[in-house]
């Protein structure tokens, strides 16, 4: 997989979410992603950003345009240095939440994107990577 462009955006407060959403939108439009897929991608980003702000007081988001064969896509990597997730399988279950949310964030996000990867170490932080292909 080829990375065609890469930038890192810091997310530390709620208003940064709107900023990042707009940036993701720009990138998605650039690779001619359809409106429905754009909406899925931005919603997924929004969910993960919220998690990052709520549980880890923010972190970094890497926005990339990636290419694989004839397919172009957007890869987003969310890196935080929060408390980490002790049981990822449990966190990926619908309706499970340690906070007061609906527990849709992680499993819902996975349904909205093409590729979803989560790595977490307790006490060190969490990294979530998602990819949405332009025509995926």
């Amino acid at each position: 997989m080829l990375s065609l462009s890469k930038e890192t955006i810091k997310v530390l407060k709620e208003q940064d979410v709107v900023l990042l959403r707009n940036r993701v939108k720009e990138v998605a439009v650039k690779i001619k992603m359809g409106l429905v897929n754009q909406t899925r991608l931005i919603t997924a980003a929004s969910e993960l950003l919220r998690n990052m702000l709520r549980y880890a007081n923010g972190g970094n988001c890497i926005v990339e345009i990636v290419s694989s064969g004839r397919n172009n896509g957007v890869r987003l990597t969310f890196i935080d240095k929060g408390p980490g997730i002790p049981d990822i399988a449990l966190a990926m279950k619908d309706g499970y939440s340690t906070g007061k949310s609906l527990g849709l964030g992680l499993p819902g996000t996975k349904r909205l994107v093409n590729e979803f990867d989560i790595k977490s170490k307790v006490g060190e932080g969490t990294t979530v990577t998602i990819i949405k292909w332009a025509n995926g």
């Binding site: 409106l35 429905v36 909406t39 919603t43 609906l102 849709l104 819902g108 349904r111 909205l112």
Partner: peptide, 14 residues
């Protein structure tokens, strides 16, 4: 509600 939003909400599970 925009159609894309409706699609996303249902896929999200809401």
């Amino acid at each position: 509600m925009q159609p894309a939003v409706a699609i996303t909400l249902i896929e999200l599970g809401l």
